[in-house]
């Protein structure tokens, strides 16, 4: 149990030396190998895969979800979860569609999408923190609520009067095959990694997720941090909504339906403990690419969508069970 030196050390080293084996066994490293294997598999399965434009197209499958997953990862590390994100995407998209219908200019449309996202996230945050309710239940409630509002507003109609310039968010390329979406995801990933791993705010997220009471005793304002994380999750859903709506060019109330499953899968696959307290942004980023490769590979094999959701569900359960299975094997 204890791992201590007998002699009083004058100065403690910062880190154990010679932990290469430990680094190699890290989840992120294993995941990277899985990703490479899937890449090779896809390349062998079809000659078209290695075409840069095919690869570029493949990224559209997951970048919007991955952007949301970055924020949901922070929430899960803090011990909370947001399952309403896909419904927030829909709500934001409908709000943007409504603004576009009455001829609102591009900046107003985008601002509306982002603002609705933040607002919906803030509502989640207030309910969870002010009433000390479990977020899994609260956000299942708002999942239904936000989506329901969308149905009431739009019925079985469609908003599609977006100005032509709106297409840049989901359909343009910043350089050669690098889409605006992919570039945004990579930039956001770097920002989130800095936020989580290099700032006091990120440090408090880990402390809260591991031991809320000790965090509180250390003067961390637990409710405030959690509220901000819900807002952030809403904001990222808003960002994803702008991109998705722009890519599709229209809004229906079923937009982004069921995305929360894939987003949570990405987060957990990325090594974030569903119980809170551990995980990293690089892990989530690698997981996003792995998920993209899985869905693309299954697509190449002509696997229908229904079977694909079976595969994703299986991945989710397997990854959650893996630590337990390993513990059982070790015993």
């Amino acid at each position: 149990m204890t791992e201590e030196r007998a002699d009083p050390p004058a100065d403690l080293p910062f880190r154990d030396r010679g932990r290469l084996a430990g680094a190699l066994l890290r989840w992120e490293t294993l995941l990277l190998f899985v990703g490479v294997a899937l890449f090779i598999f896809n390349a062998l399965a079809t000659p078209y895969f290695l075409n840069p434009w095919t690869l570029s197209d493949a990224t559209f499958n997951f970048t919007e979800k991955a952007i949301i997953a970055l924020a949901v990862a922070l929430l899960v590390i803090s011990g909370e979860i947001d399952l309403s994100v896909a419904s927030i995407v829909a709500l934001a998209s409908i709000a943007m569609g409504a603004v576009a219908e009455i001829g609102g200019p591009l900046p107003v449309i985008v601002a509306t999408g982002l603002a609705v996202g933040v607002l919906a996230g803030a509502v989640n945050g207030v309910i969870v923190t002010a009433f000390a309710l479990p977020s899994i239940v609260v956000t299942i409630g708002t999942l239904s609520l936000y989506r329901g509002i969308g149905y009431i507003v739009l019925g079985d109609g469609v908003f599609k009067n977006y100005p032509p310039e709106f297409a840049i968010f989901g359909q343009s390329y910043v350089w050669w095959v690098i889409s605006f979406e992919l570039a945004s995801f990579l930039v956001l990933a770097v920002l989130f990694a800095i936020l989580l791993h290099k700032t006091p705010f990120g440090r408090s997220i880990y402390a809260i997720g591991n031991n809320t009471l000790a965090a509180r005793f250390a003067g961390i304002r637990v409710e405030r941090v959690k509220f901000l994380l819900f807002c952030l999750s809403g904001l990222m859903a808003g960002v994803a909504s702008v991109m998705l709506t722009s890519r599709l060019g229209s809004t229906r109330p079923t937009i982004a339906f069921g995305w929360e499953l894939e987003i949570v899968t990405m987060v957990v696959l990325g090594g974030v403990s569903i119980l809170g307290g551990s995980g990293s942004i690089p892990g989530v980023v690698i997981a996003a690419f792995v998920m993209g490769l899985i869905t693309f590979g299954l697509g190449l094999l002509n696997v229908p969508g229904v079977v694909m959701s079976v595969a994703i569900g299986s991945v989710l359960i397997f990854v959650i069970a893996l630590p337990r299975i390993l513990a059982m094997v070790r015993r």
């Binding site: 791992e3 009083p8 050390p9 004058a10 403690l12 910062f14 880190r15 154990d16």
Partner: peptide
């Protein structure tokens, strides 16, 4: 590190999880 020295903390390194002490 300074306070580890002051308090004569016995550990392998500063990145060690507190739960293992």
């Amino acid at each position: 590190r300074e306070y580890a020295r002051l308090l004569d903390l016995r550990a392998a390194h500063l990145s060690q999880e507190v739960g293992t002490l």
